[in-house]
């Protein structure tokens, strides 16, 4: 099956007052109808990867290398008019802050209609009809009235629904979701996650869902790529990652969660902090924080170890499970 999104060895660096190597060789693949989660902490390069997919990064200061293929077309070779034809039609994006993503001076109805007119050559009246249909679909109460509402007149959860309606108005093949539920309250977050899950299944879209929250990833993703310091540390199915993580960072992330930890007991933590990305990494970026590191980890880049079934971990010990790794640290009894 040919992937809908295929990213190969993507590197993104920003140059200006200081240089940041934000993405250092990311490869991703998303198939039709698949939800891929990008899980990582701030600065791990997940949002930059998403913006590169849409070519939303500031051109002057950004250097991009590698290849990005979306729906069979080379995104890095696209001209401006091809890009704007793609955005919203083939690939749409939703963000953490709908208040910033929506235009404050146009009504919700007008913004959705504009996108339909622009991409499908429909009339404004037809556009408004689609807008109403979309607002109903994302279950905004009294949708007719809301067509003429401005973004500031809506609550946070409602604005997020409106942004989803706008993003999906032209039935894109791919939805990029950049932490769309992070700013929402718990009872609203789960509503939006379930809505996205339902719309994804209905429309058969492919989704890349960026999150730092493992619980959110579990609710929505089929497969997950864990990112660290601008690289994919591990990729696999959600179940594989949660039950049998192979990269020491993924293992640490899962064991440092407060969920299931007993009150008053210390949490297992990953010591230290992520590296500064002012230099491109020459060795394993996780080595300074890794309890399993050996001498070679500090010298050469770890290989992408293929574990079968589209599963990969970038670590020389990827074949070993978490408990096998810990066992190998104990001196063997004579």
């Amino acid at each position: 099956m040919k992937p809908v999104v295929s990213v190969r060895d993507l590197t993104v660096s920003f140059h200006g007052e200081r240089t940041v190597h934000a993405v250092n060789g990311v490869s991703l693949e998303v198939r039709q109808g698949e939800v891929l989660g990008l899980l990582g902490e701030s600065g791990s390069g997940k949002s930059v990867t998403m913006r590169a997919l849409m070519r939303l990064l500031p051109r002057k200061r950004t250097r991009i290398a590698g290849s990005i293929e979306v729906d069979g077309r080379d995104v890095l070779a696209m001209k401006d008019d091809e890009l704007s034809a793609m955005r919203g039609k083939v690939v749409s994006m939703i963000f953490q802050e709908p208040a910033l993503a929506l235009d404050p001076v146009y009504t919700i109805g007008a913004q959705i209609a504009e996108s339909v007119v622009r991409h499908e050559g429909k009339s404004m009246a037809e556009g408004r009809e689609r807008a109403l249909e979309m607002l109903e679909r994302v279950r905004i109460p009294s949708p007719k009235r809301r067509l003429d509402a401005y973004p500031h007149e809506m609550s946070g959860g409602m604005r997020q629904r409106a942004m989803i309606a706008l993003a999906l108005a032209c039935k894109p093949k791919i939805l990029l979701a950049d932490e769309p539920t992070t700013a929402l309250d718990a009872t609203v977050q789960i509503q939006i996650l379930l809505l996205l899950r339902e719309l994804q299944a209905e429309m058969g879209m492919s989704v890349i869902f960026v999150t730092h929250d493992l619980g959110v990833a579990v609710e929505i993703c089929d497969r997950v790529s864990v990112m660290y310091a601008g690289k994919v540390a591990e990729t696999g199915t959600l179940a594989n990652l949660v039950r049998d993580p192979r990269h020491p960072y993924a293992q640490g992330l899962l064991s440092s969660t407060v969920l299931g930890a007993r009150r008053g007991e210390r949490l297992t933590t990953i010591p230290g902090a992520p590296p500064s990305l002012s230099q491109p990494p020459q060795a394993c970026s996780f080595e300074p924080r890794c309890r399993f590191a050996v001498a070679s980890c500090a010298i050469q880049r770890p290989p992408e170890v293929d574990l079968g079934e589209r599963r990969m971990a970038r670590c020389i010990f990827a074949e070993k499970t978490a408990s096998e790794k810990i066992a190998s640290l104990q001196p063997t009894p004579a």
Partner: peptide, 20 residues
């Protein structure tokens, strides 16, 4: 409303509708 950590026990229905 808390997301689960069990891939086999995803939330099926939102406990509350609407915003506070």
């Amino acid at each position: 409303s808390m997301p689960t950590l069990d891939p086999d026990a995803r939330t099926q229905e939102a406990p509350l509708a609407g915003d506070p």
